[in-house]
Computed example of a mutant assay.
Amino acid sequence: KTCVTDSTSVSNCKNFPSMLTLNSYIQACRGLMIAAVSLGFFGSIFALFGMKCTKVGGSDKAKAKIACLAGIVFILSGLCSMTGCSLYANKITTEFFDPLFVEQKYELGAALFIGWAGASLCIIGGVIFCFSISDNNNKTPRYGNRKYSALLKTKYAVHKILRTLKTPELGSVRTRFDKNAYV
């Protein structure tokens, strides 16, 4: 029991509230939010090991796999948080618009909107994390690209023409532009 005594020595006692006596939807929301926080923590640790700038984690392929795992864990964390907030908001709106519900009615507050925004950012961040890692593994080397090598050949040909061109009034084009000519 928890008891409160006022200045006139009047004591008021009530049974200590137990978590097991809460409504099932509140327990489900709490469980989902605890799961979301735990998954977010482990996702952050995986992300630290999967970054290219850290020396822990092994080779680049191993780091890519760890980073992709971190992205998936972030997505799961966001989904848990989104589900918990949505479940609670559904219960609030159902009770609010029920004309037969006579107890105290609640409205959607800032905490729900912050929860939805945080869950959305977590999901978006996890998706971006997964796609950024997969893009880095599938890229062709910069110098092996056909368009880039054709551009280099064109620049070399134009530079060769400018090098051989001479006019008497301007002097040698080569001396004017030298190696840093932008064409």
Rank of each mutant, 00 (worst) to 15 (best):
T140N: 15
T140H: 06
T140A: 14
T140P: 05
T140G: 14
P141D: 12
R142D: 09
R142I: 05
R142V: 06
R142H: 05
R142P: 01
Y143E: 15
Y143W: 07
Y143L: 12
G144W: 03
N145A: 01
K147P: 00
K147C: 02
K147F: 07
K147R: 12
S149T: 09
S149M: 08
A150G: 02
A150M: 09
A150V: 07
A150T: 03
L151Q: 09
L151W: 03
L151E: 06
L152A: 12
K153P: 00
T154A: 15
T154Y: 11
T154S: 14
T154G: 04
T154I: 15
T154W: 11
K155A: 07
Y156R: 15
Y156K: 14
Y156P: 00
H159Q: 08
H159I: 01
I161Y: 08
L162F: 06
L162I: 02
L162R: 01
R163V: 01
R163N: 10
T164D: 12
T164M: 08
T164L: 08
T164S: 11
T164Y: 03
L165P: 00
K166A: 06
K166F: 05
T167Q: 09
T167H: 11
T167I: 10
T167G: 11
T167S: 10
P168C: 10
P168V: 05
P168G: 05
E169N: 15
L170C: 12
L170V: 12
L170I: 11
G171L: 03
G171Q: 02
G171N: 03
V173M: 14
V173T: 12
V173H: 04
R174V: 02
R174L: 04
T175H: 07
T175I: 08
T175S: 13
T175E: 15
T175M: 06
R176S: 13
R176H: 11
F177W: 08
D178W: 10
D178H: 08
K179S: 09
K179A: 13
K179H: 13
N180T: 14
N180E: 09
N180D: 14
A181N: 09
A181M: 07
A181Q: 06
Y182R: 15
Y182L: 13
